[in-house]
């Protein structure tokens, strides 16, 4: 079994003259939960379409299970479950009809599992999909995606438009699936808070380029927010810790450090008289915002 489930190799996507994705390369290893982050229009959807063999990149290629997916789409999709961004179940089809249709397409189908999930969420079987609520559509889509016991689960912004309860249920479902089968997951999302606890690796797409592609733990390990007494400018001792942005706050100045190291920082901290309580970790959301919005200015 291939240790790499998904590989993006120098993928570029163009629409006419606009370059939506520019030379993106990264890999999703087996068993990993990979979260691809990016603002609207950053190129996430284009990458997901390339991943599913729906679109051919202008340059580069995407491999799934070790083979280029544009050429081997059918073989690849037999092992992939997809939850799309916008529900694409034909509106006239009921849940029962959709299940019956999908079950025939795969070599193996976990019908009992699908029924169990739909029962748990209370999704009616005979109502046309167009008449279901957004949450129910999402639940049906997830149940269908998990039906073939896929080796790869692809979720394109699955929590878009869902209320808090539906979002919670979706993550619970995902976690259970991970616990049961260790499925590889590729998740393109805005929901940074929800994904924070579940993702193994994280990639951030901005302006069509990959800003980072890293272990989540390592990422969170190297970012810190430091509160400084109002000094006006960044103290030079902090320069080696990859200061990313500095913001003038109401009570104090704040700096974001992107190359934090516990040991090395202890000295600087004492030298600058920074209290340990002034150094705090950052949530995914805060890191993401810092990467995109430097506040009062990017520090060189």
């Amino acid at each position: 079994m291939n240790p790499t489930v998904v590989a993006f190799d120098r993928v570029s996507v163009r629409y006419g003259r606009t370059v939506a994705v520019d030379g993106v390369s990264f890999v999703v290893p087996r068993g990993c939960v990979y979260a691809l982050l990016g603002r609207n229009g950053a190129g996430k959807s284009s990458l997901v379409r390339c991943l599913l063999g729906e679109q051919k990149p202008a340059l580069g290629s995407v491999s799934v299970f070790g083979r280029p997916v544009w050429q081997t789409r059918v073989a690849a999709m037999a092992r992939v479950g997809v939850v799309p961004e916008e529900p694409d179940i034909p509106p006239e089809m009921s849940a029962a009809a959709t299940i019956a249709f999908c079950a025939r397409l795969y070599p193996s189908w976990d019908g009992a599992g699908v029924e169990r999930r739909l029962d748990r969420f209370g999704v009616p079987r005979t109502v046309p999909a167009g008449a279901l609520s957004k949450g129910q559509k999402g639940q049906l889509a997830l149940a269908l995606a998990l039906g073939p016991s896929p080796d790869l689960l692809v979720l394109d912004d699955p929590t878009l438009g869902l209320d808090a309860v539906a979002r919670k249920e979706l993550y619970e479902e995902l976690v259970e699936e991970l616990a049961d089968r260790g499925t590889t997951v590729f998740l393109a999302t805005h929901d940074l808070a929800g994904v924070e606890a579940v993702a193994d690796r994280v990639g951030a797409l901005a302006g069509g380029r990959l800003l980072l592609d890293e272990d989540l733990e390592a990422l969170k390990g190297r970012f810190r927010r430091v509160r400084l007494r109002s000094v006006g400018a960044l103290p030079p001792e902090l320069a080696r810790f990859g200061p990313y942005a500095m913001r003038r706050g109401a009570f104090a100045d704040e700096a974001v450090l992107s190359r934090f190291d516990d040991g090395a920082f202890a000295e600087a901290r004492d030298a600058l008289g920074i209290d340990p309580t002034d150094v705090s970790g950052m949530t995914m959301e805060e890191i993401f915002i810092a990467l995109h919005d430097p506040g009062d200015g990017r520090v060189p």
């Binding site: 068993g31 976690v175 616990a179 579940v198 993702a199």
Partner: peptide
């Protein structure tokens, strides 16, 4: 169990 706790916390079971 690992599964139950992961589900309650909504955290990757591997963690």
């Amino acid at each position: 169990s690992v599964r139950e706790l992961a589900r309650e916390l909504r955290v990757n079971p591997a963690t």
